[in-house]
């Protein structure tokens, strides 16, 4: 390619200086739309983590004492097997509970290091025939006073409310995010169009003296892509803050009803990377479309 990187950046910097306020405005719009989309995804990941134990129809959990005897365990197993109101159940032993605990609190070394396998209560995850909360409550109560039982936790309406509520909120985030995304796309398109107009004399001279099509186009494409990339990249602190806010909202009975309402840090980073890539793609697509329509080379 017959142009030097230095020249390219100089063209880009001329371009940015000419339409700086427009550039910043567009960047902020992309930032907001990417934040809304990303926040929806973080919320979804947080709810999934928090309600992980309650998926696949599990309505209540019987936790045994960590030092419960085999006889106590067998007694509960027999009771479950003989009850016609129980559809199915799974047993989670100390090791599996420990792994689950470690995964739930993967972001908090302090909490993870404070427990050992021996401290973990084994549990039965139970799916009753009927998910009705009255039935579940009655069934759960039947295990509370059994020997060796440490605690019985039912997926009461709160969990269901959180799950359906978060789905609804997520849908709103998605719709608003998509609408903002379209506006961001149009804004990048118009920014590039305006920039082409502002630089029409340069473009005309470039054409006349024989600059290649790519030499003329690349700075505009970089400008559009940069807007999207920066808009997406700047979402990281906001998404992290949002995750902390969720964590504060959801903090309470860690082990029992809900795990921490918080997306794992790794997931937040993945969402951030996806938002950055999406921003860059949007910026590039919008600028390419604008160039094909308004730049005659």
């Amino acid at each position: 390619m017959n142009f030097r990187i230095g020249n390219l950046f100089r063209e880009l910097s001329y371009s940015l200086r000419r339409s700086f306020s427009l550039f910043v405005g567009t960047l902020l719009t992309i930032l907001i739309s990417m934040t809304v989309l990303g926040a929806g995804l973080v919320l979804s990941a947080a709810v999934e983590t928090a309600t992980d134990r309650w998926k696949d129809g599990v309505e209540f959990i019987v936790f045994l004492n960590p030092d419960a005897s085999e006889a106590e365990k067998s007694s509960v197993t027999n009771k479950l097997n003989s009850s016609p109101e129980i559809d199915r159940f799974t047993f989670v032993d100390k090791e599996a509970a420990f792994v689950e605990f470690q995964s739930m609190f993967r972001d908090s070394d302090q909490i993870r290091e404070s427990v050992a396998v021996a401290d973990m209560p084994p549990s039965f995850r139970i799916v009753p025939e009927s998910p009705e909360s009255d039935v579940v409550e009655t069934l759960a109560d039947g295990f509370r006073d059994d020997p060796g039982v440490f605690e019985v936790v039912a997926a009461v309406d709160t969990i269901k409310d959180i799950e359906t509520g978060s789905t609804r909120i997520n849908r709103i985030f998605l719709i608003v995010g998509m609408a903002l995304l379209v506006s961001a796309l149009l804004l990048v398109y118009n920014t590039i169009r305006t920039t082409i107009f502002a630089r029409r004399r340069e473009v005309e001279v470039m054409r006349l003296v024989g600059a290649s099509n790519w030499y003329i186009r690349v700075p505009f494409m970089i400008e559009g892509t940069l807007q999207g990339l920066l808009g997406g990249a700047l979402t990281l602190p906001i998404l992290q803050l949002w995750n902390n806010v969720l964590s504060d909202i959801g903090s309470g009975d860690g082990l029992a009803l809900l795990a921490d309402l918080r997306a794992p840090d790794q997931t937040v980073i993945m969402i951030w990377l996806a938002m950055t890539a999406l921003g860059a793609v949007i910026g590039m697509v919008a600028s390419v479309v604008a160039l094909s329509r308004f730049l005659d080379v």
């Binding site: 017959n2 142009f3 030097r4 020249n7 001279v205 470039m206 003296v209 024989g210 600059a211 290649s212």
Partner: peptide
């Protein structure tokens, strides 16, 4: 110089 720069 612009005329020379843009053609590399």
């Amino acid at each position: 110089a612009f005329a020379l720069e843009v053609i590399g």
